[in-house]
């Protein structure tokens, strides 16, 4: 399979940050949300806010409940306790279709044995807006083509979705979110398995969508660069939340990730964070 074949990627497209977001962004708020799968409690009394238009990053070690928390924002998992509010309304009091018009999700599905073309996948984003027997309108098709062009994969439209590389798949799913015209965007590890250039391109695209965004993200430095607000999760609880400068600090991150964290100053910008294993003796020669 030609997956992740660099030469097959399209050239980087110029990303226009001023994507026309058809709908005004909505705020999102979770208050004391407790989530469990079966008898296993995964998130405990999590509260967080995403103001309209903000990009919120969720950071935390593996198994800290990031994915589970995100699933509660698009009705995949109903909280045992607590409330999720989208705009003014409780998520679970809205109709599923109405939620789908407000919240778009970019998450990789497990591979299936059935093939859809990239264009078909992107066009699925229109389904919350269509009735049962309705065909795609000319406006719908126009939206799909525009979104494909916007994320730079217009020429991949007739290809089978499963033959795309990881970066191309993320672009297609972002295009799907664009045609969905939702007002909140949820992404689960959008940069996973991507090489550095595609990580940056995907995050630029996300920023360009211009709606309220909540994403889980592994790379703390990328989180610092692209997020307005960061929530640090550990063992399903919020350990810290706030602005990048307040939260992404050695004091917060060291106990959460169990590593040593160092600030590395950078000319003309925010200092980078450098991580070392606690068992690593470090660069100093032992005395």
């Amino acid at each position: 399979m030609p997956d992740d074949d660099l030469t097959s990627e399209p050239p980087p497209s110029p990303v226009t940050p001023s994507t026309p977001a058809a709908n005004a962004p909505l705020s999102l708020s979770l208050s004391d949300v407790t989530l469990a799968v079966g008898s296993l409690e995964i998130c405990t009394e999590v509260s967080m806010e995403a103001a309209a238009g903000q990009i919120v990053g969720i950071v935390g070690p593996n198994g800290s409940g990031k994915t589970t928390l995100l699933r509660s924002v698009y009705r995949m998992l109903r909280p045992r306790l607590g409330q999720v509010v989208v705009g003014e309304d409780d998520l679970w009091e809205l109709r599923p279709r109405e939620v789908a018009r407000r919240v778009a999700v970019v998450v990789q599905e497990p591979r299936t044995d059935f093939e859809f073309t990239v264009r078909e996948v992107v066009a699925m984003g229109r389904s919350p807006h269509q009735s049962a027997f309705a065909q795609e309108s000319a406006a719908d098709r126009e939206r799909v083509e525009r979104a494909l062009a916007h994320v730079g994969i217009a020429e991949l439209a007739p290809r089978a979705f499963s033959t795309l590389s990881g970066g191309e798949k993320q672009r297609a799913l972002i295009a799907r979110a664009l045609v969905q015209e939702a007002r909140i965007l949820i992404l689960d590890e959008p940069t996973n398995h991507l090489d550095i250039r595609y990580q940056l391109e995907v995050l630029e695209l996300v920023r360009g969508v211009g709606v309220t965004t909540v994403m889980s993200i592994h790379d703390v430095n990328l989180a610092a660069e692209y997020c307005d607000h960061v929530v640090v999760l550990q063992d399903g609880r919020v350990r810290a939340a706030g602005s990048v400068d307040a939260v992404l600090t050695p004091e917060v991150l060291e106990p959460v990730f169990g590593v040593s964290v160092e600030r590395v100053p950078r000319a003309g910008g925010r200092s980078l964070l450098w991580f070392r294993s606690n068992t690593d003796p470090g660069p100093e020669p032992p005395v």
Binding site: V107, E109, T112, F116, S127, A132
Partner: peptide, 22 residues
């Protein structure tokens, strides 16, 4: 009449949910 919902279901449960089809 369920054709579109079936497409979503075939693509994946997360996708179906996020498009308003439980």
């Amino acid at each position: 009449a369920q054709a579109r919902a079936l497409n979503l279901l075939l693509f994946g449960d997360e996708t179906a949910t996020s498009m308003g089809v439980p």
